[in-house]
Design a protein around this nucleic acid. Structure first.
Lengths: 190, 190
DNA sequence: CGGATCGTTGATCAACTTCAACGGTCGTGG
DNA sequence: CCACGACCGTTGAAGTTGATCAACGATCCG
């Protein structure tokens, strides 16, 4: 259950055996079935979720009912409405299982506590966020500087697994394109 | 010189007098004149820059010579090619002064050292990154879910100062639009 | 003064969306 | 266990948004 999480953390920082044990106290195990919500628009995001297995998506729905994917994560990724989690204000994201999933939830209270009592975890998150910022910067650039085909090939090279793990229309939405456009690009490139 | 930085840090964490003094050791003061580079594409980003005064932009240039703005910052913002800074690999961003600017530079070596010797600063950066992630998430969403007009009005409400601080064609590029389009939207809305 | 930079406006154009129809696969309930 | 509906990808045709291209006026500054 905690194996993947511990492994993940230890790629960035070193944990003592005591810290490893201590760590488990902070999390709640939660299972989600396909299509089940972790969070709905308008709620305050009370948990960061570490995905032990399965696939989750976060997205918004506009007034016409169109879904726009904010993020897609699977084993080894963290998931939350970051704005809502850190500020405590109402969020705009929905988070939902794309496949059955097993999560380790870290509540805001426990997170704050952890940041005080386990400095090593504050460091872990700082490092995690460094990577994450760099990635998001690249995604922003590809959004505003690339055309449809460039966006698609970029995501293929950066996240080759993505294509196998999720339905194509989710990938399309993640890229800000329509399913039709992605379908046509795929054809054209083959 | 350090006043703004200290103020900024103390919005997020509490510093002792000793830490305040210690902090200054880590930084190099640097002045940039308008149009002067802080970083050029292909270089490794060796510094994070805290902007004490002035305006900086980070951007990429595509094969046709078109500039795409990644980020624009002024007094109180941090600036770097985050990917390059954290990984130590060559970067893709150019960073340049839009107006004469005064910076406090924190080198990668000093940053790494600071993270070890000043836990409070590790915490500061963790908190800074939390906010930053939330902001970038919102920007990604507005990039992929919004049309030109919505992007423009969103940036107006989130960063009203931006319009006064920077030329309009930079704002356009920041939004992934052409100057012409922004000009037309502005007219239409008035 | 003359050049560079910037915003504006108009006309044309292309990329991507929208709309619609169809075929395949999967899962669920009768 | 099969049938039907939901879901998904594909293809074609038409439509729209924003880009491109070009010209012009204003401002700033050396």
């Amino acid at each position: 259950m905690f194996k993947l999480l511990l492994q993940h953390i230890q790629e960035k920082v070193t944990l003592t055996d005591q810290e490893k044990t201590q760590l488990e106290e902070y999390f709640i195990v939660k299972k989600l079935r396909k299509r089940q919500y972790l969070l709905q628009e308008g709620e305050v995001c009370k948990y960061m979720a570490f995905i032990s297995s399965g696939v989750l998506k976060s997205y918004v729905i506009d007034e016409k009912g169109v879904e726009t994917i904010n993020f897609i994560g699977w084993e080894g990724w963290w998931m939350a409405d970051s704005y809502s989690f850190y500020t405590g204000e109402k969020g705009i994201l929905n988070i939902e299982a794309v496949e059955d999933a097993e999560l380790l939830l870290l509540s805001k209270e426990k997170y704050d506590l952890m940041m005080i009592t386990m400095p090593v975890m504050s460091t872990y998150f700082r490092i995690l966020y460094e990577r994450s910022l760099a990635t998001k910067d690249r995604r922003i650039l590809s959004n505003i500087a690339f055309n449809a085909e460039e966006k698609y090939t970029q995501v293929l090279t950066c996240y080759p697994e993505l294509v196998d793990r999720i339905p194509q229309h989710l990938l399309a939405s993640y890229l800000g394109l329509t399913p039709e456009t992605v379908s046509r690009i795929k054809n054209k490139m083959k």
